[in-house]
């Protein structure tokens, strides 16, 4: 099987639509086929990292719960846009996962290097 470097970008805020949950489905499917995956939270998407979320009773999927387990799926390349939390005054919030930050310049590079980009 040909390996493709897949970059999944999540830019939509949690619960804003079904897109973030769809992004997780794409990620898990690609991981099942052992493709090298990079996950990047950008813009409003960084809010998926906030650990205080609780979607119980809403009927919507809280994808943040899955993030600490991605390591078991061999998805260890998880990043967020630099300053995106600080711009929202969320830099001191507790996160579900410690992830490295990428500058916009590094994000541009990541997009160029990927074979396939899924932008949610």
């Amino acid at each position: 099987m040909t390996l493709k470097n897949i970059l999944i970008i999540i830019r939509q805020a949690p619960y804003s639509s079904l897109l973030p949950a769809a992004a997780l489905d794409v990620l898990l499917t690609a991981a099942a086929f052992e493709q090298p995956i990079t996950l990047l939270f950008m813009g409003e998407g960084v809010q998926h990292l906030l650990s205080a979320q609780n979607s119980t009773g809403s009927g919507m999927k809280n994808i943040s719960k899955a993030l600490p387990s991605l390591e078991l799926y061999e998805v260890d390349q998880v990043f967020m846009e630099k300053d995106a939390l600080a711009n929202r005054k969320l830099e001191n919030e507790k996160l579900v996962l410690q992830v490295e930050s990428l500058s916009l310049n590094q994000i541009a590079d990541a997009i160029e290097k990927a074979d396939q980009v899924f932008n949610f």
Partner: peptide, 20 residues
């Protein structure tokens, strides 16, 4: 695992979870 992550693992992931 299901309660914490909301996920149903694949066999491969379950085996890794057991190993861990």
């Amino acid at each position: 695992f299901h309660q914490q992550s909301g996920l149903i693992p694949s066999t491969r992931v379950l085996v890794k979870l057991i190993a861990k």
